[in-house]
Design a protein around this nucleic acid. Sequence first.
DNA 1: CGACTTTACTTGAAAAATGTAAGGAAGGGG
DNA 2: CCCCTTCCTTACATTTTTCAAGTAAAGTCG
Lengths: 134, 134
Amino acid sequence: MDRTDHHILNELSQNSRITMKELGEKVHLTGQAASDRVAKLEENGVIEGYSVNVNNAKMGYPVHVFLHIIIHTAHKPYLSFIETQQPYIMNNYRISGDGCYLLECKFPSHEYVDTFLKSLQEHANYKLSIVINK
Amino acid sequence: MDRTDHHILNELSQNSRITMKELGEKVHLTGQAASDRVAKLEENGVIEGYSVNVNNAKMGYPVHVFLHIIIHTAHKPYLSFIETQQPYIMNNYRISGDGCYLLECKFPSHEYVDTFLKSLQEHANYKLSIVINK
DNA sequence: CGACTTTACTTGAAAAATGTAAGGAAGGGG
DNA sequence: CCCCTTCCTTACATTTTTCAAGTAAAGTCG
């Protein structure tokens, strides 16, 4: 994990579909050498995968929210519930504090948020934060 | 944005470095057709970019936290401060509520969190949530 | 010191993927 | 019916990747 590896990770974080040849040029290596280093970063588990950044608004999910969840009773009903809400759930983080989660979601409109919260209410207490900007 | 486009985005979200030929096979198209569709998704702004998933723990940042920020006075000191904290900041979301942000950070250890919070204290009030699991 | 191994890189050729161009089939509208 | 557009395919030239040697520097150990 030297400077060049950091440079490589930085380039890949900006565009992971870059060719190894181009990546090599950016970090002053041949395509081979760059490719070898990337392979090693993958083997070591430093690189876990490659993904795409999708514009959620254009996909029909313009509303982005975080929900601070507090559950005093069993967690299972909550966890089962969010599994049924697949398209809306982005991340469910277990956080410090008893029975606490931070739930990141996307919705087509505020009406959908409302509907979701009505169902969520049956399994957990929550505090809603709507994302205005990044 | 038909079923095939959704299928393409799903495949790319799992592995954006897949070849167009392979992607085509997965969605029952030729490599060209897949490539054309991806190009169109990029033009339309549905695809905003391609990135890499890095294991933060292996990069020396095993501690992952969210900070709920509330600022009653000017925001600028806070915003300037977090710009100086580059390596630790993952995301700074502007959220609903006056003077509120949700700040996502990574740290090498709890000591670093402590040091960071001591400085943050000078610009804003916060509530700390440490991520245990995803 | 000197022989051996390892690591990181380069080069060149073969194999694979991509980009380009031309063309065909399906659907819509005048 | 004809024309146009969209979406896809095929074929081929170009580019990239992969594979196989090979070099050079650095570390190991008798």
